[in-house]
Computed example of a mutant assay.
Amino acid sequence: MIVKDWCSYCGCCAGVCARNCIEVKETALVISDDCNDCGICVKACPLAALELEE
């Protein structure tokens, strides 16, 4: 899940995604259905703007 108020769209999450599931746009992150919820992007986010949904 993306916390849009915190996200700066820096691309750190997309840079660490081994499956290339994250596309960074000007004011949006698009996470594809290929995401396997590994959590690497959550750990890479310097602003804690990503969370895994339960």
Rank of each mutant, 00 (worst) to 15 (best):
M1E: 00
M1Y: 00
M1D: 00
I2M: 01
I2R: 07
I2W: 04
I2F: 06
V3I: 14
V3Q: 12
V3W: 08
K4I: 13
K4F: 09
K4A: 14
K4E: 14
D5Q: 15
W6R: 15
W6C: 05
C7L: 11
C7I: 11
S8R: 15
S8V: 15
S8M: 12
S8L: 13
S8G: 06
Y9P: 05
Y9G: 06
Y9I: 07
C10K: 07
G11H: 09
G11Q: 07
G11P: 04
C12D: 14
C12M: 15
C12H: 13
C12W: 14
C12P: 01
C12G: 11
C13Y: 12
C13V: 10
A14L: 08
A14K: 03
A14W: 02
G15P: 05
G15W: 08
V16N: 07
C17Q: 04
C17F: 09
C17E: 05
C17I: 11
C17S: 08
A18V: 11
A18F: 12
A18P: 08
R19P: 01
R19L: 12
C21A: 15
I22Y: 02
I22S: 08
I22E: 03
E23N: 11
V24Y: 04
K25Y: 06
K25E: 06
K25P: 00
K25V: 02
K25L: 12
E26D: 10
E26G: 10
E26S: 10
T27A: 04
T27M: 02
T27P: 00
T27H: 03
A28G: 01
A28I: 01
L29M: 04
L29S: 02
L29T: 03
L29E: 08
L29H: 07
V30G: 00
V30W: 04
V30R: 04
V30T: 03
V30N: 07
I31E: 02
I31M: 04
I31L: 04
I31T: 08
I31G: 03
S32R: 13
S32F: 12
S32V: 02
S32Y: 14
S32M: 09
D33A: 13
D33Y: 13
D33H: 05
D33M: 05
D34E: 15
D34I: 14
D34Y: 12
D34T: 11
D34A: 15
C35R: 07
C35G: 06
C35A: 09
C35Q: 07
C35V: 12
C35K: 11
N36R: 11
N36Q: 10
D37P: 00
D37V: 09
C38M: 07
C38K: 05
G39M: 04
G39W: 01
G39V: 04
G39F: 08
I40A: 12
C41M: 06
C41N: 05
K43M: 13
K43C: 02
A44P: 02
A44L: 05
A44I: 07
C45I: 03
C45H: 07
P46Q: 10
L47A: 07
A48I: 02
A48D: 15
A48H: 14
A49S: 15
A49R: 11
L50I: 09
L50V: 01
L50H: 02
E51Y: 04
E51H: 08
E51S: 11
E51M: 01
E51W: 00
L52M: 04
L52A: 01
L52F: 00
E53R: 00
E53L: 02
E54P: 04
E54D: 10
